[in-house]
Computed example of a mutant assay.
Amino acid sequence: MAGAEPQVGAGGPAVQRLQFFLSESVWDADQVNDRRLELSRMLEATAPHDGGAIVIDDSGDRKDGTATAHVGRQWLGRLGKIDNGTVTVITVWTDGRVCYPLHAQPYTPAHHFRRGRIDQEFRTKPQIAATLAARGKKAGFARRAVAADCAYSTSDDWYFALRAADLPYVVALRPHRGTWARDD
């Protein structure tokens, strides 16, 4: 697939076989990801250590129409504006030398839920991020801290969830938000 020409090569047998395999294979994505992380922990070059951190980010892509799951009008950082698109919350582990993904989950805008933002199934991006960070810790990757940009600094739920999971954090603050620190 890497050597296939976008228009001409996409219809070639090798590319079509790979597309069929990826789209039609029956597998549990969480099991595949858990195994990938297990192998990463075993290798000296990628094993988590005390100098590493979990980084949280979200990434959006513009989408036309409404047929794709999770589509809605929302902030798309890549475009620097609100537009129709999908957003995925992602955690990565890094020590400044090595960086690799841990978990990812799409954000589903409130209008997809029967009761909107008050629906029990609805999750904000900070809530998803806190859950993914806790999964990273459970998988053995939380070490020094969880880091996030200022988009997460406005969510008290995010702070409370990380504290409940006993995860230290570093987050950029928006200028209007006060700062504090524990005595210890």
Rank of each mutant, 00 (worst) to 15 (best):
Leu132Phe: 08
Lys137Leu: 14
Thr131Leu: 12
Phe21Cys: 12
Gly60Asn: 03
Glu44Gln: 10
Phe21Met: 11
Pro48Thr: 06
Asp184Trp: 11
His70Asp: 12
Gly77Lys: 07
Leu18Phe: 11
Pro13Glu: 05
His103Glu: 03
Ala47Glu: 10
Arg123Ala: 10
Ile56Tyr: 10
Gly136Cys: 10
Val26Gly: 03
Gln105His: 06
Tyr152His: 13
Trp180Pro: 02
Asp34Pro: 00
Leu43Phe: 01
Val92Gly: 05
Asp58Lys: 02
Lys137Phe: 06
Tyr107Gln: 03
Val170Arg: 07
Trp75Asp: 06
Gly9Glu: 00
Ala142Glu: 12
Arg163Lys: 14
Lys138Asn: 08
Ala145Thr: 00
Gln19His: 12
Gly80Phe: 01
Gln105Leu: 11
Val146Gln: 05
Ala151Lys: 01
Thr108Ala: 15
Val87Met: 08
Ser40Pro: 00
Val55Met: 06
Tyr159Met: 09
Ser153Thr: 05
Ala172Met: 12
Val89Gly: 06
Arg115Gly: 08
Ser40Tyr: 13
Leu79Thr: 01
Ile54Val: 09
Asp184Ile: 11
Thr108Arg: 15
Leu37His: 09
Ile56Ser: 02
Arg17Pro: 01
Ala172Phe: 05
Trp180Asn: 13
Lys138Ala: 15
Arg17Ala: 13
Gln19Glu: 09
Lys81Val: 00
Ala142Gly: 14
Gly9Lys: 02
Ser59Tyr: 02
Arg123Ile: 00
Leu79Ala: 14
Leu167Glu: 14
Leu39Asn: 03
Gly140His: 08
Cys150Arg: 11
Ile82Lys: 05
Thr88Met: 11
Glu24Tyr: 06
Val89Pro: 05
His103Asn: 14
Pro101His: 04
Gly11Ala: 09
Gly136Phe: 04
Ile90Asp: 01
His112Val: 02
Val55His: 04
Val15Ala: 14
Glu5Val: 09
Gly136Leu: 07
Arg114Met: 02
Leu79Met: 09
Gly85Glu: 01
Pro48Leu: 06
Arg78Lys: 09
Gln105Ser: 09
Ser23Ile: 01
Arg35Met: 10
Trp75Glu: 03
Pro101Cys: 11
Val8Asp: 08
Ala2Arg: 11
Arg174Cys: 10
Ala172Gly: 13
Trp27Glu: 01
Pro168Thr: 08
Asp28Glu: 09
Ala139Ile: 02
Val32Lys: 03
Val92Glu: 04
Ala165Pro: 03
His49Trp: 07
Ala45Val: 05
Pro48Trp: 03
Thr124Tyr: 10
Ala147Gly: 13
Leu79Ile: 00
Asp156Lys: 12
Gly72His: 07
Arg115Asp: 15
Gly65Asn: 02
Gly85Cys: 01
Ala133Pro: 12
Tyr169Arg: 03
Lys81Thr: 10
Ala69Trp: 00
Arg78Pro: 00
Ala53His: 09
Gly116Leu: 12
Gln105Pro: 02
Gln74Tyr: 08
Thr46His: 06
Asp156Leu: 09
Asp57Leu: 01
Leu39Glu: 10
Arg41Gln: 12
Asp64Gly: 10
